[in-house]
Simulated scan of single mutants.
Amino acid sequence: MSDAFAIGLPGYAVIFATLLCAYVIFGIAGFGSALIASPILALYIPIAKIVPLLALIDLCAAVVNVSRDARKADWTELRRLVPLMVVGSLIGAAILLQSQPDILLLALGVFVVGYSLYSLSGLRPERSFSRVAALPFGSVGGVFSALFGSGGFIYAIYLSGRIRDKNAMRVTQTTLIGLSTLTRVVLFALAGVYLDTSLLWLALFLAPGMLIGITVGRRLTLGMSREQFLKLINVVVLASGVMLIIRYFA
């Protein structure tokens, strides 16, 4: 393995363990790997390399998950959300080129924290979203995926109010993340980011941790009730919102 990052053997061990834990969450929820992995990776790897590294590994994880359980995905919801996600991504890219969108980061973080706390409080009645709700959730998810690489928890809020079966929700979420990440991977590839062989070697080194993590996460999901699954999703969404607020003030 290349020593371009000068990580050292203990550092590689920490990174591998972190990625394994991150992809247990990904295997359960279909998103959230960056939430767990990024703060630790930033101690060892240049920040500019973390996003393309995780994008590549996320894409591989999504492909593995979808290949296992594609028949369980809700393709009706995917056909509804994917075009909106694409449009939102284009809008997000335009915003990024024209302005400083940091205030949007704070606004989204506050909304997500408030929503997840409300959901975890038990005060919320059982609810479901209408099909029309795909319009704001799909497009806003695309916008924030383009702006900050953070859109998975927005789709999770929508899907939790649309899909009853936890496995169908997990695979549908993973498929969305895979499609969203594919765009970023293609852009990074065109920009020559993956010509850095040290980055590719590191991704290859971490691949077994990713595979173990998503396998463990999938098995944990199979043993959960829907209520337990949704509670965990809301905890991950809450953590995502807190990280957005911290990122804004940092």
Rank of each mutant, 00 (worst) to 15 (best):
F5A: 14
G8L: 15
P10A: 10
A13K: 05
L20C: 04
L20N: 06
C21A: 14
A29M: 04
G30C: 02
G32P: 04
I36Y: 08
I36S: 06
A37G: 05
L43Q: 14
L43G: 14
I45R: 11
L53V: 10
L54E: 06
L56A: 11
L56I: 08
I57S: 05
D58S: 11
A62Q: 02
V66Q: 07
A73W: 00
W75E: 08
R79T: 11
L81D: 01
G88M: 01
S89A: 06
S89E: 02
Q100K: 15
L104Y: 15
L105F: 14
L106M: 15
A107C: 15
L108Q: 03
S121C: 10
L123S: 12
V132L: 15
S139L: 14
G142R: 00
G149N: 15
F153L: 04
I154H: 00
Y158S: 09
S160P: 03
R164E: 14
R170D: 04
L176P: 00
L176A: 05
L179F: 06
Y194A: 10
Y194T: 07
S198T: 12
L200T: 05
L202E: 13
P208V: 09
M210S: 08
I212G: 11
I214D: 02
T215F: 10
V216P: 06
R219P: 02
L220G: 03
L222S: 13
G223E: 08
S225K: 08
E227F: 10
E227L: 11
Q228H: 06
F229S: 01
G241H: 01
I245M: 15
R247Q: 15
F249C: 13
